[in-house]
Amino acid sequence: MGSIVLDKVQKKFGDVEVIPPLDLEINDGEFVVFVGPSGCGKSTLLRMIAGLEDLTAGKVNIDDKDVTEVSPAKRGLSMVFQSYALYPHMTVRKNIAFPMRMAKIPQDVQDAKIEAAAKSLNLADYLDRKPGQLSGGQRQRVAIGRAIVREPSAFLFDEPLSNLDAALRVGMRLEIMELHTKLKTTMIYVTHDQVEAMTMADKIVVLQAGVIEQVGSPLELYHTPRNKFVAGFIGSPKMNLIEGEEAAKHDATTIGIRPEHVSVSKTEGTWKGTVGVAEHLGSDTFIHVHNTGLDTGEGDLFTVRISGDIAVSHGDTVYLTPDMDQLHRFDAQGLRIA
């Protein structure tokens, strides 16, 4: 079991309100990702759930029990830190055993669990090393191992992959997802990387300045962003947001069109522009177009994503045609117009 309910939780540091009163429900077995730009309060929120941060007001319920005043260790949660937070003076074995030792679990049970965890995390050969002798990925696995053996009702991950290099990150992402499929335990995962959020989550919580902008499945967020912020934050490259005259044509203050929902032609189309930079990735081509005459904000930049390769280069004139079915419309408050 591992359902978590946040009831009007609020956090102030001194007079600064980091998180205004906020409600959130996380169901048992869900993989929930908190995503948002840095400083949006996502880590603070996670730490409040963990019990590492006091609540200024509100309640945290785990499995229908109020745990607001319960110490971190007694909440039955495991946390994996960004810095891994391994105990540097203990071997891998002792690191993994540590929470069980604290809980006074019999030695033979401990040993069995360590063996199992080490096997599933490919750590069997490293059990007697100290964290300092391990690579970043291995340390991350040890941290996960330490979290698993407690058999928590939920796992909390605080940006666990951001200290790893790009290649390793993709691998670890898959491992964590496989772990979730296997254990079916609730996981709450904090990241600033929307790609991680989109690929891993059952449910994404988008935060900005401590406020939940939207909660939904990755595809919901992609297809029906509730406001301009979510629209801009989810998706890569970013959605093109157009204001002014062109938006007014669609009865909106702002219209949005994702780069992948625009087609490019050298001869004809709705909008005309000049190619600034074309990034040829082979599988895709990102074209950054200037001088479209559209009000796209400061950079005068319109981004297009084409599947496959297309022969355009700097200075070429191109014509752009948006897929009207995929147009997003927002009102003056930035909210989505249905």
Binding site: L52, A73, K74, M79, F81, A85, Y87, P99, M102
Partner: peptide
């Protein structure tokens, strides 16, 4: 690192345990 102390808290350390198991070593 503060993280290590917090990891200890999550793992069930008391204040005295923090000092004995983490701080002093």
């Amino acid at each position: 690192p503060k993280d290590i102390i917090e990891a200890g808290k999550m793992d069930g350390l008391t204040t005295w345990g923090e000092v004995k198991e983490i701080l002093i070593p």
